[in-house]
Design a protein around this nucleic acid. Sequence first.
DNA 1: TGCTTTTACTAAACACTGTTCAGTATATTT
DNA 2: AAATATACTGAACAGTGTTTAGTAAAAGCA
Lengths: 205, 205
Amino acid sequence: MGIIERKEREREEMRKLILDGAQKLFLANGFDKVSIRNIADEIEYSPATIYLYYKDKNELFFALHQTAFTKLIHEFAPIFQLEQPMDKLTEMGRLYLRFAFNNPELYELMFIMIAPIETLECREDVWEDGHRAFSLLQQVVQACINMGELKHTDAEQAALMIWSTVHGLAALLLRRRLSMFGEERHEALIEEVFTLFISTIRKGL
Amino acid sequence: MGIIERKEREREEMRKLILDGAQKLFLANGFDKVSIRNIADEIEYSPATIYLYYKDKNELFFALHQTAFTKLIHEFAPIFQLEQPMDKLTEMGRLYLRFAFNNPELYELMFIMIAPIETLECREDVWEDGHRAFSLLQQVVQACINMGELKHTDAEQAALMIWSTVHGLAALLLRRRLSMFGEERHEALIEEVFTLFISTIRKGL
DNA sequence: TGCTTTTACTAAACACTGTTCAGTATATTT
DNA sequence: AAATATACTGAACAGTGTTTAGTAAAAGCA
């Protein structure tokens, strides 16, 4: 009786097909071009079909947001090779900012858009990906404290401060609030400010 | 020939009427409830009328965004009474965060939404309010450097780093990315993290 | 095999959205 | 009083997310 297994497999394939179509439009044409009808056109199905596989648009955004997180975690891999916790922290921040810069749409989905979070809230569910990522940061910060490289003792507070700074940079950039610096300066500026921040917490945190 | 003056005055009153209606819906019902038709209903005019006074919805958002900036600048007033530049900087940050916390919709408009900025971009105009506000911060930072309270010499870099941190906190809060800390902790947490940040840059920047 | 039930899908509709335009009623000018 | 300019609107266009009734194919059962 492998039929239900095959059906389940086909269902999963269909979900993937929709997700990939959505992501393709998403990355190619930006947010505005991602309507349910556009996705339906892209995968050559009717709009109503999408609702047989995803409850609503927010749930689709949430699924995309999850794949974006696995991509970020994947790009964090080199960190675990590093010995010094302070090097880990620095590289983590640099990779985080690079991810935001190179994948603006994905970053939006993960840390700026409210849509994916609303799915969780109405299911009274929890933002697991976010919590895991933050706890990873907090662990690295704790290691820095344990090694005496940071003097402040509350790793949670320190981690949130660090996250705020890098997210702030990314969010200001993506939401086009850095126009007082010419666009051509943006990439270098972010690099410089991040370096400054690291040197600041090395001395002051 | 005071007729054209009166007409001009009436036109300005109508713009204000629309703006106030929009802001009322905006603050009362959140973003989603602010459609051109809702505003038209609110002020008891036809939707088409609004387009005689504002080019499109983005321009309306931009006008709202401007009034929000004057409110923020207004709330910054106490800063100029302070003597010590470092006190100025600290109080500026605290007031900024308080503004974001107490006026989430206005903060969205000013620093998160893309809509108002798009109006500027398509008019090849510049984000004056933002530039002015940042330059205010930069001046205070420069004063701190001049007084020897901050050692780093590049006020522009330092100011951006500071802005990033406070904006990061505000943006993570408003876009509901702080769920790993219980909602009841948010206000106190932001206060703590900001205090930690100030003490960090005092020592390390 | 034939018959019934379940599954997968879609066309069409509903209630919205921002925006435009032809037409009207009022106010101003000549 | 007639002509013109102004202010406003109803209705439409093209789009959105979402629901529902109906259909054709697949699966289960006799």
